[in-house]
Design a protein around this nucleic acid. Structure first.
Lengths: 133, 133
DNA sequence: TGTACAAATGTTATGATATTACATTCAGAT
DNA sequence: ATCTGAATGTAATATCATAACATTTGTACA
């Protein structure tokens, strides 16, 4: 994870859009929300997202092709982050678990696997939505 | 996970294509490999894949938009499966870990989260490819 | 047998996500 | 001033997935 430099204009706009949202956003939704700010093409969003992910300020949710602002951007070193994603309301909880990290770490060491990125995502209904259902 | 009935023609063809492959395949790659068998459209593949996933015979790798045949289709009950995906050679290792399962289970119980599907995918270089690099 | 129903299939079109390629602009270093 | 690398702008295209609707197939059972 690279250190955070000053953000560029596009990076700031994308991060602000994600911070303002109450859940994950797709790249194209971000694009639409930034058209008034001058955004015209998907690449402007994808390029900013790539940098923001490098800085640890944004996470990509692989299982739903969407992006969220990191809820604790100051706590670095937590390489292995898990997400609980509500399929009803879109709410995302971000959490770490040392035991999970240790077990997966053991697996990769045992198998001489060199991990680059680990995805842990639980999709389902959050407490509030599960009640309503 | 639904029980496995007799597979239909398309389901059999798709499963055979995945079994024959030495790594995960995208839906469109499967389509191309089955054109000689009469496949014409993506939906034929996606529909078969959906059923095969219901039967526990195929897994979707969320982080790479691809599909693999389950390596141990007889061992059901292993709801929480983890994957180690080599980004160089495409090799996929499928494994379970009771401790990981227990820890994530604890989290969802604590948070009253009702999980529907859990994704655990580690992308990186497998032992063989890491050496070569 | 036939007929009714559910599941599977075929086909076209379209929607949604992501990247390639190339030109231009901007900011900092010398 | 000019060089350079990063960032940006833009068009086109590649890749992944589903909607909508027509048709066929399998099967239960009157």
């Amino acid at each position: 994870m690279n250190p955070r430099p000053e953000l560029t204009k596009n990076q700031s706009l994308v991060l602000r859009a994600l911070d303002a949202a109450d859940g994950p956003l797709s790249a194209y939704t971000i694009l639409d929300r930034l058209r008034e700010e001058g955004f015209r093409a998907p690449l402007q969003v994808y390029r900013a997202l790539e940098k923001l992910q490098d800085f640890g300020l944004v996470h990509r949710l692989e299982s739903i092709n969407a992006f969220v602002a990191c809820c604790q951007p100051h706590e670095h070193g937590h390489e292995m982050i898990a997400f609980a994603i509500c399929e009803k309301c879109g709410k995302v909880d971000e959490f770490c678990d040392a035991a999970v990290q240790e077990r997966l770490g053991t697996w990769v060491r045992t198998h001489r696997f060199k991990p680059a990125k680990t995805t842990i995502e639980i999709r389902g209904d959050c407490a509030a939505c599960a009640e309503t259902a």
